Amino acid sequence: MRISWIWALPLLAIQGLTACATSDTGAAATAAAPATLTAYHWQLREVRNAQGQLQPGWTLPPAPSADTAGQTRAVQLSFAQGRVSVGRLCNVLGASYQLNGQALSIGPVMGTMMACPDSAAMALEQQVGQRLPQASRWAIAQAGRAAAPVLTLSFQDGGQWLLDGVPTDATRYGSAGERIFLEVAPQRAACSHPLIPNYQCLQVRSIEYNDQGLKTRVGPWENFYGDIQGYTHQPGVRNVLRIQRYKKPVTPADASSYAYVLDMTVESEIVR
């Protein structure tokens, strides 16, 4: 069962900024920063209080999954189209945000409460939802051209978050990609792969929808030789997936020229 919820914390007023002289170089860097903010996902590395002391309890131990073995689960923020979303926990949280130079205001955090057996993740979600609307300033620093950028969020009480930048799919592939829908059959099927003997392909067919969300076209079943990033196939389960498809800038001769990234699961059905 899904339950809508909201932390209706009042948005604290942003403190007035002290006027200071800015060099031409600094102004150029500030002007470019909003594009950098939306070009990366930001993974929380450090939380410090007003005295600069590290604050524990803002990350989670690795999930019991082979895909994430040994990886600490960190809060991830993504900024796009005036919305900030929080991921990598249990639910996906979101809020509106506004920039005014280096000043930042974030509205009340909302999300859906889905059943989650991980009580620590649920507790951390509440911490994040209560803290984000108290953000007041932001800044991005990059040590060198090859180094990942670091986002610093400053809060009304003087505390700070440091977050490491990870390129979004659109940044990695150099385009916004194309949204498509694929239905994945419950079972794989044997197919001829030039490099892998006895390969089992996913069986997929394309689906098109009109503006009202009604199916207008269903394509034929086809072998799918590659992988869909973020998707793990379970035998006996039929899925309809919403996918972002990106043209790869460089493609080996024996590989697909596209990268497929799962956006969301639209339908899921156990087929007996």
Rank of each mutant, 00 (worst) to 15 (best):
V75Q: 06
V75F: 06
L77F: 00
L77Q: 00
F79D: 05
F79A: 08
G82M: 08
S85Y: 06
S85C: 09
S85L: 06
S85A: 14
V86A: 03
G87C: 12
R88M: 06
R88N: 11
N91T: 11
N91E: 07
V92H: 11
L93C: 04
L93Y: 02
L93E: 03
G94H: 12
Y97P: 01
Q98F: 10
Q98N: 13
Q98E: 12
Q98R: 14
N100Y: 10
Q102W: 00
A103F: 02
A103Y: 03
S105Y: 04
I106K: 01
P108S: 02
V109P: 00
V109W: 04
M110C: 07
M110E: 11
T112G: 14
M114K: 12
C116T: 06
C116M: 05
P117S: 15
D118R: 12
S119I: 14
S119V: 12
S119E: 11
A120H: 08
A121K: 06
L124Q: 03
E125P: 01
E125A: 15
Q126I: 12
Q126L: 14
Q126V: 08
Q127I: 06
Q127Y: 06
V128P: 10
G129N: 08
G129I: 07
G129R: 01
Q130A: 09
Q130N: 12
L132I: 01
L132A: 09
L132E: 02
P133F: 07
A135N: 09
R137M: 08
W138M: 01
W138A: 04
A139Q: 13
A139V: 07
A139Y: 04
A139F: 05
I140P: 02
I140T: 04
A143L: 12
A143W: 04
A143N: 10
A143F: 05
R145Y: 10
V150C: 08
L151M: 10
L151H: 07
F155V: 02
Q156G: 04
G159S: 10
Q160M: 10
Q160R: 15
W161M: 03
L162Y: 11
L162V: 11
L163H: 07
G165E: 03
P167I: 10
T168K: 00
T168S: 02
D169F: 10
D169T: 10
A170N: 08
A170Y: 05
T171N: 01
Y173G: 01
G174D: 01
G174M: 09
S175V: 08
A176N: 05
G177N: 01
G177S: 10
E178A: 15
R179S: 04
R179L: 05
L182Y: 09
L182T: 09
